[in-house]
Every structure is written in structure tokens, then in C-alpha cells.
Amino acid sequence: MDTNELKRKLEIKGAGSSLKQSLAIDVGSLAHTAQFLRDEPNWQMDDLENISAFEMKGDILLTYFLKSSSTGKTMVLRATVTPKTETSEVDAVSVSHLWAIAIPLEQEISELFGVRFQGGKTRPHQVLPEGWRGFPLRKSYVFPIEFASIKHQRHEHE
């Protein structure tokens, strides 16, 4: 999506007139759209409040909560990524070059949902222990019965 198309889309949505505006975008244009909203004088969405992810019917929905520190207006950007299988990782684009707060938020989503943020600064295993397999916040995730030789299965007392 180029800048003009984005502007048209935002005008159609009427975003900026209310505190509850959301825009669904293609994950490929995420960084471009975010940068536009941050730098464009009419928007000035200079504050990334939060990045949240949740899984719905096999899709992982990434939600970006933006806020303008000068006008107080808020906006939600949403992009969807779909992993090929229940256990495979999927790619998205990092916005950590625009907002430093994105670094720890992307790190969590990377480990817990298996989303790789291209161009980001995610490191292996910050939240989960070294050697942990799978992405615990996916709906299909099955908890291991053993990790690092420690069994997690509960036995009923007789």
C-alpha cells in the first residue's frame, strides 16, 4: 500500500475524529503504515502503547495500540499472519526501529506465539527457559509432561 492509498483509506475510515479507530492492514505494509502514522503531522502517533497478539482459528492477529502524545488520540493497527502449520513459525515486520518499546513486546510475541519479527532485535529465549520447545500461547499448544528431566505430570494420591 503506497502513502496516497493509505491516506485515502484513513479518510474513508474517518480515523482521527474519535478515540476508537482501527485499521486492518496487510502485514507487509505494517512498518510503512506505522511510520506514516508516527511522522505525518496530521496524525503524530508518536507513542506505541502496546503490541498484543492472539490466535483465532489458526490466524495470529497482531494488534498495535498507537497514541498521539500531543493530541491524546489513540488508534489501533491490526495485521494478521498465518502459520503454515500449528508448530511452524511465521514472519512479520518489526517496528522496533520506530519505537524502542517494541523490542520487549516483540520479544514476548516471538517466543510465546512463534512470530519472527524481521529487522527486529529479538534474542533467543528471554521469557522461556533455554531449550523450551513450542509456542505456549497458541491455542493448539500441548504442555510438555517433562522438561529438563523434571516431570510435570501430577499423580493422584491413592
Partner: peptide
């Protein structure tokens, strides 16, 4: 279905 917290300590 999902509860996500954005904490100030981040």
C-alpha cells in the same frame, strides 16, 4: 480467549 497485559515495568 486472550488476556494480555502491557505493564509499566516494560
Amino acid at each position: 480467549a486472550r488476556v494480555q497485559f502491557k505493564t509499566p515495568s516494560t
